[in-house]
């Protein structure tokens, strides 16, 4: 694989995992909740596309956004009684929800998987010299750039973004100043649902078979990315997601073909080393720890 080809493919997966990481970090920021069930939002999106086969594309996209965002809001309602619970309690609760949902999908749709049949022609590649770039790769990178740009505008330039950042940095002080806690938390779930729906649409093209653990397999590397980048802050967490996606593709290329099965082992070994050297995350600055109060 040429270097440029590698770079493009790595960026595409990086962009996708960056979006997932940001979705996780948004909710963590305002609730200190690591939502293990976040992957199931992506699965819900995939099954929505399965169930709307035959509908016009625009309606299917709309349905995916509506159902995934509604599911995210439902999760907010489910986690609401846990707002004052310890981090461990919340973590276990989201784990439980994740497995409950996966088994529900298993029960309803069965283990074989359902074909999604969503915009399959986007898997065709355009050839520029010896480069072969699939349309969906270009879309993934563009979508990642647009959504990350939009989120950074929203959080950096608007009043509601300022409130979310304040709530993420110091929740009690934010409330004392008049930030409506319930509203900010709800908005975080809406935005993270929006990101999950966007990720679903790209994944549905790349991986056209919906299975009960469809989103979970994406959540795990993204979550690792969030921890590697720095859990408490949005930008480092997002960069962490990108880094994991990028590294996965690059490592996959570097490893000899017979050793690809060890890809995850090598990746996680690097993660462990990174966390040993920088326990607060790879991309956190000096104040990273102080802010995570």
């Amino acid at each position: 694989m040429s270097f440029v080809q590698l770079l493009i493919d790595a960026t595409a997966l990086g962009a996708l995992l960056a979006l997932v990481a940001m979705g996780i970090a948004l909710v963590f920021g305002v609730m200190r909740l690591v939502n293990f069930a976040y992957g199931e939002l992506i699965t819900v999106g995939a099954y929505t596309l399965v169930l709307t086969k035959g509908w016009p594309i625009v309606l299917r996209v709309l349905a995916a956004f509506v159902v995934v965002i509604a599911s995210s809001l439902l999760m907010e309602v489910i986690f609401r009684p846990l707002r004052r619970a310890t981090a461990a309690t919340m973590l276990v609760a989201t784990f439980a929800l994740s497995f409950l949902l996966q088994n529900m999908f298993l029960f309803i749709f069965g283990p074989q998987g359902e074909t999604i049949e969503f915009l399959a022609p986007l898997n065709r590649a355009i050839e520029i010299g010896d480069l072969r770039i699939r349309w969906i790769t270009i879309i993934a990178i563009a979508l990642g750039a647009v959504l990350l740009g939009f989120m950074s505008w929203l959080l950096g330039k608007t009043s509601v973004g300022l409130q979310m950042r304040a709530a993420a940095a110091d929740f009690t002080t934010a409330r004392i100043l008049g930030v409506r806690a319930g509203r900010v938390i709800m908005l975080a779930f809406v935005l993270s649902g929006f990101l999950a729906a966007a990720v679903t649409l790209v994944l549905a093209v790349q991986r056209p078979l919906a299975t009960p653990n469809y989103g979970f397999v994406v959540l795990v590397p993204a979550l690792v990315g969030v921890v590697v980048g720095g859990l408490g802050k949005l930008v480092p967490a997002t960069l962490g997601g990108f880094a994991i996606g990028f590294a996965t593709v690059v490592l996959g290329d570097l490893l000899p073909s017979g050793s690809r099965v060890f890809l995850n082992s090598v990746l996680f070994a690097i993660v462990i080393i990174v966390l040993l050297v920088r326990p607060d995350g790879l991309f956190t600055g000096r104040t990273g720890v102080a802010e995570r109060v």
Partner: peptide
């Protein structure tokens, strides 16, 4: 509040 609790990174 005691300790000011300003947002240092803002």
């Amino acid at each position: 509040p005691e300790g000011r609790h300003i947002y240092p990174d803002f």
